[in-house]
Design a protein around this nucleic acid. Structure first.
Lengths: 119, 119
DNA sequence: CTCATTGGTAACCAAAAGGTTACCTGTTGC
DNA sequence: GCAACAGGTAACCTTTTGGTTACCAATGAG
């Protein structure tokens, strides 16, 4: 695909195009603070491949990470998902955006509550 | 990407990864019954390239088409979008799925009402 | 302190993606 | 009836994607 001026939206949609990356997002969402190795261990491809996928998710803003010693902790970021939903549902989008923000808020609060557990 | 056993979800996510394809979906959604040529004329790349993109959207079930004389009419299909939303919002997903189905129903009804206009 | 673990970069390569032109058939408008 | 229009297929080519192995530095556990 043309590298011409990729928008944040482009990055998000491209990031989620790959099934492994979607599964990675599931893992990160389900286990906040999971490590790179923790994610990579779920896949049969190499750790380097996993890191490349994670890098794309992070570039797209779908996950965030923090280096902690020799590990890197990964966290899910739900905000870019709103753009996906809004894309073709512009009718009543203000209504749904509000609903979605509410629910995302709840998801985040739960994630914070779970944040004491490690990978 | 590996051609191994692509799920319908895979097809959808891959289809929407390309910005031109997203824009095409916008066009088809905004103008039900628009022709291939009608869509292609919005892009600087060749008609054949446009057709390839449209073919991917159709394979993914995101649009449908009907041959009419020498033209082909294109229609938006909102149902696969549900999968995109549900992907990472599995909490309360039964609640949102219901809401979303309602809204999609309304979108479709409006599309049918507009279906008398041509591209 | 030593070794194992974790993460990171670089180089490489096959396959896929996304474009191109050429050619053809069928339909429609004049 | 003819030319223009619309859609379709095939072949081709460049770029990107998604994997691989090799090597290294930093951290952590024993």
């Amino acid at each position: 695909m043309s590298p011409a001026a990729q928008t944040p939206e482009d990055l998000v949609f491209q990031a989620i195009a790959h099934p492994a990356r979607r599964q990675m997002m599931d893992l990160v969402k389900g286990t906040p603070g999971i490590t790179v190795q923790g994610v990579a261990s779920h896949f049969s491809f190499s750790r380097i491949a996993a890191m490349k996928h994670l890098a794309r998710l992070e570039t797209a803003g779908l996950i965030t990470s923090e280096k902690e010693g020799r590990s890197r902790k990964l966290y899910f970021n739900p905000m870019p998902i709103q753009g996906i939903y809004d894309r073709w549902t512009s009718e009543d989008s203000s209504f749904w955006a509000g609903r979605m923000a509410d629910m995302q808020q709840r998801v985040e609060q739960r994630a914070q509550a779970r944040n004491k557990k490690n990978a």
